[in-house]
Design a protein around this nucleic acid. Structure first.
Lengths: 208, 208
DNA sequence: CCGTTTGTACAGTAAATTCTGTACGAAGTT
DNA sequence: AACTTCGTACAGAATTTACTGTACAAACGG
């Protein structure tokens, strides 16, 4: 089967890039151009702000492309749409899957892997920051606790050395405050993971 | 005045790097090595996890260095401690100041700029994510709202074209859901900025 | 008002990251 | 079993980002 494509130009922070969108069946060119214009604005905005999630600009655009694709895509389709190699699509889509921003889906009859965006952005947001924060929190808390106990041992060992004790005290205060902070962060992560955050800050405002 | 230094080796994800810590006055070498060991562990952990904040590893280490420095530092001191050029220190410290992780402080008698870490990590955290999220939220909401109204106009214009309307509907649903998400995100940001987040998730657990 | 000192802009270099093409193992088809 | 097709590992090329040294404007001191 032969597919026709419509080229839309996405403006990025440095220059611009083309995306090939598959033609919508049964629509006139006029209709399609109007629709693509509306889509393009959103794809650009999303793609350009994805650095927040620490992903490449091209990965961000892949995400934008997938967002408006109303069906799952294969790696080859992505490669053609983005005018990039299949290898790049493979790595890009994997980072998106790792971040749970994109899901791999199964479709009977197809040997190819299919991908579509996770449309629940609340979930995407919560998953992403849980993941990132938890990693930092675990490592840092571990280091802080170990150093805290070392500092305590030193305080005991050099209990008569006034000047050194004072120095130790300053460090201990900092470490304790950092531990306090990470304990709080852990509770915040907990609220994200348990979805309790949506009780605290509701998804929708109560309609009056 | 002449200052002596103690070299500590920081392990980073790729290789390692030296940091020159100023000698603590009146402490024995034994004491100091023990203290630096405890500090080093925390500096390493912090520095290696700062990619979360989208900053360079070296900027992360500068932050770690400043964290345990119990007095403000000048650019020259940082340059010496990090074994890097003053230019690099200037740019690194500026990104930290922009992120409100480090404050510029004044000291009478000194012509040099002095910097110290913001020790209130709750504030640092809230400021950082407010800043980042707000930027993305504003731009994306603007794009989404504009595209939403365009889609509505198209729906009116092509009210008889069943197939195209269906396509529009799919896009509108996505845009609406995205707007719903960003409205929620704005309220979350609000909670961070107003410090209401600390009512919802308290800094300290009530002691029983 | 001239000589210092300080911080940063800028251009060039060094280093790291992203992207591509080839190659190959895994899985499906004939 | 031989033949396709698919996804990704890997190495090298292309691009981007980080770092350095020089130069200079701003602020201060004599």
């Amino acid at each position: 089967m032969q597919a026709l494509f419509l080229t839309i130009t996405i403006n990025i922070t440095k220059g611009q890039v083309n995306i090939q969108m598959e033609r919508i069946e049964g629509a006139t060119l006029e209709q399609e151009l109007a629709l693509q214009k509306a889509r393009k604005r959103v794809i650009e905005a999303i793609g350009n702000n994805m650095d927040l999630y620490g992903i490449t600009q091209s990965t961000g655009h892949l995400y934008g492309l997938l967002f408006f694709q109303n069906k799952p895509m294969t790696l080859d389709e992505m490669g053609h749409a983005m005018e990039m190699s299949k290898t790049s699509m493979s790595t890009a889509v994997r980072t998106l899957v790792d971040l749970k921003m994109v899901n791999k889906v199964w479709e009977k009859g197809s040997r190819k892997d299919l991908y579509e965006v996770e449309l629940d952005w609340f979930q995407t947001f919560a998953d992403f920051f849980s993941l990132k924060w938890r990693k930092a929190s675990e490592i840092n808390l571990h280091a802080l606790r170990k150093s805290k106990s070392e500092l305590q041992e030193l305080s005991a060992k050099y209990a008569e050395d006034e000047a050194f004790l004072q120095q130790l005290q300053a460090d201990q205060a900092k470490v304790d405050e950092a531990i306090r902070y990470y304990s709080w962060l852990n509770r915040l992560i907990e609220a994200f993971e348990s979805e309790e955050i949506f009780k605290l800050v509701p998804k929708d405002l109560p309609s009056r």
